[in-house]
């Protein structure tokens, strides 16, 4: 599994083994479980992401989406369960597994004293690219996300949306086969959001696989072909978009799974006009 440093990220030929992917799932997590202190955050999450699919993970706040994704990519050790990326166990063979995935975690820091270009350059070097390739990819990605004008600004000074974009750029840097993105559109401006959407759609069209978590049901409905709904630390429903929404909108199906309804919200008297 070697890198070809000369290609622009996102294209099929730049990916290791690009073109004909083996018939193994891009991501297969089974029975993931994790507690923090006495609180069980994830209690049996299964995710099956076929290669080439655009997979959405939805769920209410605190349901365990981010925790599950962190376990799936090898950043949080599960109490139980397994995670495989293209058939490679993330915990048994992290070197091979992590080379195939690009990750955008939610809420984790970046080296804040580096500029965006420096950050991408050094991470590219750590990914095994030579200096010229790392520099070229850094420039490509900065331009792609509209960050090429931020030359002297340290990452610590970026706005929330800019941090999201540079994080996404780090995820794409090693031209992965699978992208696992936690809330990639949060705080991103509409123009950049459209760029990211276009990029992800192209990525999947070229044979890549994407897993993204989001609170935006309409976005997930538009982009994803498969969806998992996580509720209270468990996979409540998983399948194709149609299988999950069962003739309703995804929003209604989601609310139904939660046993919640927004139709008759009881407004406190003091709030009424």
């Amino acid at each position: 599994m070697t890198e070809d440093p000369g290609h622009v990220p996102g294209t099929a030929s730049s990916r290791p083994g690009g073109g004909a992917f083996p018939p193994v799932p891009a991501l297969h997590a089974t029975g993931l479980r994790r507690s923090f202190g006495g609180t069980v955050a994830v209690d049996g999450v299964d995710l099956l992401v076929p290669a080439g699919s655009f997979f959405g993970v939805v769920g209410p706040n605190g349901a365990g989406k981010s925790t599950s994704l962190l376990m799936a990519v090898g950043l949080l050790r599960p109490d139980a369960g397994t995670a495989r990326i293209f058939g490679v166990d993330v915990w048994a063979d992290p070197v091979r597994a992590k080379r195939m995935v690009g990750v955008l975690p939610d809420g984790l820091a970046l080296p804040e004293r580096l500029t965006g270009r420096e950050l991408l350059h050094y991470l590219g070097r750590l990914d095994g690219l030579d200096g010229a390739s790392a520099a070229r990819r850094a420039d490509d990605l900065l331009r792609l996300f509209g960050l090429d004008g931020t030359g002297r600004t340290a990452v610590g000074e970026y706005s929330t949306g800019m941090r999201k974009k540079i994080g996404l750029a780090t995820a794409l840097l090693n031209a992965p086969r699978l992208l696992v993105l936690d809330e990639p559109f949060e705080a991103v401006d509409p123009v950049s959001g459209a760029v990211i959407r276009g990029l992800l759609e192209r990525f999947v069209a070229d044979g890549g696989s994407v897993v993204l978590s989001s609170h935006s049901m309409s976005l997930v409905e538009e982009l994803c072909d498969r969806v998992a709904v996580i509720v209270a630390g468990r996979t409540a429903r998983e399948g194709t978009l149609d299988e999950v929404r069962r003739g309703e909108s995804l929003h209604d199906a989601f609310a139904g799974l939660l046993g919640a309804s927004t139709a008759n919200v009881e407004m406190p008297a003091w709030l009424r006009r």
Binding site: L75, V101, L108, P111, T170
Partner: peptide, 14 residues
């Protein structure tokens, strides 16, 4: 460096 460690962890072998 705080949680920026995740970038190193995603590059095992380095």
């Amino acid at each position: 460096d705080g949680t920026a460690l995740w970038l190193t962890l995603m590059r095992p072998g380095r």
